[in-house]
Design a protein around this nucleic acid. Structure first.
Lengths: 353, 353
DNA sequence: TTGTACGCGTTATCAC
DNA sequence: GTGATAACGCGTACAA
C-alpha cells in the first residue's frame, strides 16, 4: 500500500470539490494492484495486452475493494450513455396496460439485458406533447431509441428521423423512408386468415379493417384483398374501425347492413372482433355456422370471447427482442444500413372459424 | 469570433481521442459570448451573480449554437445521474399489464417530469433473480429508486436497505425498519368497507383476506377486525386468498362452507371478489340481497362484474406521484429522515353492497 | 507489455 | 462580477 500514484500532472492540494462518494476508483484499484491506471483499465475492459500476473493482481484488487466503474465517467470517456429509450406514445394507463405494450416492454428488457443496456421509458405526455420527447432524445441522454409507433404519430416519427439518433421502430412507420423497423408480416397474416375462411367454404368474406393511417391497418387490409382477388372473389365488403371494441361493433353493424349475405369475416384486431361477435349475436347469426370470424393479435384476450376467437398471433415479445438486437447492432457499428425484419404470422384455431 | 480560449493548461496538439461528437460544448459557447466557461456555466445553471450583459451574450450564443449540456459530463461533475429507477418485481407481462403497475408507471413518470428526472424501468427477471437489480442499483447508475414492492419480495427489500441508496417504497414494506414509503391507508379502507356492510344491517360479516406476508393483506384484515370488534361482533369468519380470481373463489367456497350464515363479505381485492361473486352465484345466493359484497382496488375492473362491485378505491396514480416527490425531496437534501405517507380510502358504491 | 499524459464537458472554488 | 483552473473518474493514443 506504499505505492504512490505519481502519474498525470502534479496534484496540488488546492481546488475544491464535493467530498468523495465513497466508492473506490480505478486509481485505488491500480494502486492496490501495483500497476498503472492504464493497465487496470485494460483488465477491466477485457483488453488482451496484459500479463497474467498483472491481470490477476488487478482482479484481486477489484474484488477486494469492490470496485465498480463509475457509469458516468465511463460514459463521458466513451461517448456513450449505456442506455436506450423506449418511446411509447399516448401514456394514459389504458394504453400502457395494453398487453401489446406490456409484452413489448418485457421483451425489450430481456433483449437489452444481454448487452448491459438500460431502458429508459419515455411516455409521451397526455395531449401528445411530442416535443419534450424529441428534446430528450436530442439531449444525449441515450445512445438510441426504440419507437413503439404502432399508433399514429407521424409527427414524432418524422422529428425522430431528423435526429441522427440510432432508432428502430416497432411496427412499420408510415411516411418515412429508410428507417429500421421490426414488425410482423401483416399482409401475410391477413392473407392466411382470409384463406382459412375460404378453405372452410366461405365465399362472401368481408373485413373490418383498421385505420387507414396506420401501417397495421393498411397492410392487413391489403392481405385480405390479395387473398380474395387470388380466389376471384370481390373485395367490396369493407368497413373501417379504430381498433377498439366499440369501433369494431359499429363497423360490423354497417358491414352487415350493407352486405347481409356475408358468411365470413376477417377483423383486423381481436378487440374489434369482440365487437363484431356482439353484433352477430344480437343479429341472431351463429358463429361460426352462419358467419365464420377470424381476428388478429392473440394477446390473451381471444380465448375469452364467446365463442373463442380464431386469430392470427402476433409474436410481440420476439418482435421487441429483435428490435433490441437490431438497435444494438446499429450501436456497435455492424449494420450501418437501415434494415427491416418481418416475423411470420401464426394462425391460432379456436371455435370461431 | 477571434476570441481565443486560453484557459487551462497549454493544449498541445498531441493526445489522441475519438473525434468530437459534433455537439457544441460550453467552451464554444463561452468563446462565442466572449466570456469564460465559468460565467457561461453560471448563466446555464441559473446563477445570480452575472451581469445582464454577460447573461444576454451567453444566452444568445446558446441559442445560436444550439448548445445543450452534456448529461454525462454534468452528471460526473455533479455526482448525480439525473435518473432514478422504478423497480418492478415479477416481470411477466401479466404483472406488467396489471392496471396497478400501469397506473404507477404513468403517475411516477408525470411526477418526475417536473424535476427533469428520468425513469429507468427495472424488471426483475422471471425466476426472481433479485441480484442483478441490486447490482445495478449499487452501480451508481441512478440517484435513487422507487420500489413497487407491493408483491412479496422481502429479499429484494432487504438488499436494497443495505445499499445506502435513497429509496421510496410504494406499499409499506414488511420487515424493514425506517424505510420511506407511500401507501394507502389499508386498515382504514377495510374498516370503511366493513362499516358500510354493518350500516346496511349485516350482522354476520366474513372476509376473504389477502396473503399474510404482504402488508396489504395484513392491514386489510386488521381493518376488518377493528370494525367488527368495535361493533361487538365476532371475527372468526376469515379465509385467505392470494389476490387472484381463482384464489378468491376457493377461499369464498371454504368460507361459505364453514359459515353458511354469512350475510356480508369483505374481499381484500376486486379480483378475488370476482371469484367470490361466482361462488355466490353458483350457490344460489343473491348479491346484495342475501350476501352483500365489498371489494378493494377499483382499477377499472370492478365496474364489469355482475353485479358491479362496491369497492374501496386505491389512488394509485396519486400514490406514485407522491412517491416521486418524496424521493425528489430526499435527493435534494430536504427530508433526510425516512417518512411515510398514507392516502385515505374512498368507498365507491355500486350494486353489490 | 506497461506507464504517462491528455482529453471528455461540466461544476465549483478561489483569487481578483 | 468575473476569470482561471482543479477536480470528477475513466479510456486510450503514444511512448517506452
Amino acid at each position: 500500500m506504499t505505492t504512490q500514484e505519481v502519474g498525470d500532472r502534479a496534484r496540488r492540494p488546492s481546488g475544491g470539490h464535493r467530498p468523495r462518494h465513497g466508492s473506490p476508483t480505478i486509481r485505488q484499484v491500480a494502486a492496490a494492484a501495483g500497476v498503472s491506471r492504464a493497465t487496470a483499465s485494460r483488465v477491466i475492459n477485457g483488453g488482451e495486452l496484459v500479463s497474467d500476473q498483472a491481470r490477476a493482481a488487478v482482479e484481486a484488487a477489484i474484488a477486494q475493494l469492490g470496485f465498480r466503474p463509475n457509469p458516468m465517467a465511463r460514459g463521458l470517456a466513451r461517448g456513450r450513455t449505456g442506455s436506450i429509450a423506449l418511446v411509447v406514445p399516448e401514456p394514459n394507463s389504458r394504453v400502457l396496460s395494453d398487453p401489446f405494450f406490456a409484452e413489448t416492454i418485457v421483451g425489450l428488457s430481456a433483449s437489452l439485458e444481454a448487452h448491459e443496456l438500460q431502458m429508459v421509458l419515455l411516455l409521451a405526455r397526455a395531449g401528445g406533447r411530442t416535443e419534450r420527447i424529441v428534446q430528450f432524445l436530442a439531449g444525449g441522454h441515450v445512445d438510441g431509441a426504440i419507437i413503439a409507433s404502432h399508433h399514429r404519430d407521424q409527427a414524432l416519427d418524422e422529428a425522430v428521423q431528423e435526429l441522427e439518433l440510432p432508432c428502430v421502430f416497432i411496427g412499420r412507420p408510415l411516411g418515412i423512408g429508410r428507417a429500421s423497423y421490426v414488425d410482423m408480416d401483416n399482409v401475410l397474416g391477413a392473407r392466411v386468415a382470409t384463406e382459412h375462411l375460404l378453405a372452410s367454404g366461405r365465399r362472401r368474406v368481408g373485413t373490418v379493417a383498421g385505420p387507414g393511417d396506420m401501417s397495421a391497418g393498411i397492410d392487413r387490409l391489403r392481405g385480405w384483398q390479395e387473398a380474395l382477388t387470388a380466389a376471384g372473389l370481390p373485395t367490396d365488403a369493407v368497413e373501417t374501425g379504430d381498433f377498439t371494441t366499440e369501433g369494431g361493433e359499429a363497423a360490423a353493424r354497417r358491414l352487415l347492413t350493407a352486405h347481409p349475405d356475408i358468411d365470413g369475416l376477417f377483423v383486423a384486431s381481436d378487440l374489434m372482433a369482440a365487437g363484431a361477435l356482439a353484433v352477430l349475436a344480437k343479429d341472431g347469426r351463429r358463429v361460426p355456422q352462419d358467419v365464420a370470424v377470424v381476428g388478429f393479435d392473440d394477446l390473451g384476450f381471444a380465448e375469452t370471447t364467446d365463442p373463442p376467437l380464431t386469430t392470427v398471433a402476433q409474436p410481440v415479445t420476439q418482435i421487441a427482442e429483435r428490435a433490441g438486437e437490431m438497435l444494438q447492432g446499429i450501436l456497435s457499428g455492424l449494420q450501418p444500413e437501415p434494415a427491416s425484419e418481418l416475423f411470420p404470422p401464426r394462425l391460432v384455431r379456436r371455435a370461431s372459424a
